[in-house]
């Protein structure tokens, strides 16, 4: 029972982090299109730093480090911020790659039709980019889910924390952690299935993404 409640938190942390990551990734990918020198330097630095730093280290900086600088962040926000910043860096790369795969002629055609840059971005680039990014997004989502157990280190009562107290109480670690593994796998399968349903709904012949 406690595990089920924990699973709720795990799913909540995952969804919030995925949303944060998507927002940050999309913003970064869009900004990278502006091709303004100082901005691209900043973006390159951002990608490099947040793809190099381990999740646990960043989480500790945000949750345990920042308070000593006078910035206090609640556990849930700290976790979501950490995973959002890191997955945002990976997603920005995925989105950027997908955007550069959009046929330049199609963008030119949109311009020739009289669309503004905003319109061609909204109606041509974005819809294609999302479709081509689906495998990358599934990977990123999986990573996020798999990093959520770290949330126990900052005191969020997700699956892992519940499992630990349960294991301490019952001394049945093997069964409990096996059950935890199965719960995670079920969540993973569930989300992948959801993604696949979406993917099928929006699938377009000829827009390959492998």
């Amino acid at each position: 029972m406690a595990l089920a409640k924990g699973a709720g938190y795990t799913i909540l942390v995952t969804i919030a982090s995925v949303c944060a990551g998507l927002a940050i990734g999309l913003l970064m990918a869009v900004l990278s299109r502006l091709q303004w020198k100082p901005l691209s330097l900043f973006l390159a630095a951002y990608l490099y730093v947040f793809r190099s730093i381990p999740v646990l280290v960043l989480l500790f900086i945000v949750f345990f480090g920042l308070p000593s600088m006078g910035i206090r962040i609640p556990p849930f926000t700290a976790m979501v911020l950490t995973l959002g910043l890191i997955s945002g860096a990976y997603l920005a790369e995925i989105f950027r790659g997908a955007m550069s795969a959009v046929d330049r002629d199609e963008i030119l055609a949109a311009e020739a039709m009289g669309m503004s840059r905003m319109q061609s971005f909204l109606y041509i680039i974005l819809p294609q980019m999302f479709r081509m990014s689906i495998p990358g997004m599934i990977n990123e989502f999986t990573s996020i889910l798999k990093y959520t157990p770290f949330a126990y280190t900052v005191g969020i009562p997700e699956i892992m924390k519940e499992a630990m107290s349960l294991a301490a109480l019952t001394l049945r670690g093997v069964e409990i952690y096996l059950a935890v593994g199965i719960i995670y796998f079920a969540i993973y399968k569930l989300f992948v299935m959801l993604f696949m349903v979406f993917e099928k709904k929006f699938r377009v012949p000829g827009l390959a993404h492998e």
């Binding site: 999986t142 889910l145 798999k146 990093y147 959520t148 157990p149 770290f150 892992m160 499992a163 630990m164 294991a167 001394l171 049945r172 670690g173 093997v174 409990i176 952690y177 096996l178 935890v180 593994g181 995670y184 796998f185 993973y188 399968k189 992948v192």
Partner: peptide, 22 residues
């Protein structure tokens, strides 16, 4: 699929904190 879909931490905890019970 199982190892890609489940957190490493769970495997580590299972072996480190669970197995001594056996």
């Amino acid at each position: 699929s199982f190892f890609i879909g489940t957190p490493l931490l769970v495997h580590l905890f299972l072996m480190y904190y669970g197995l001594p019970q056996l």
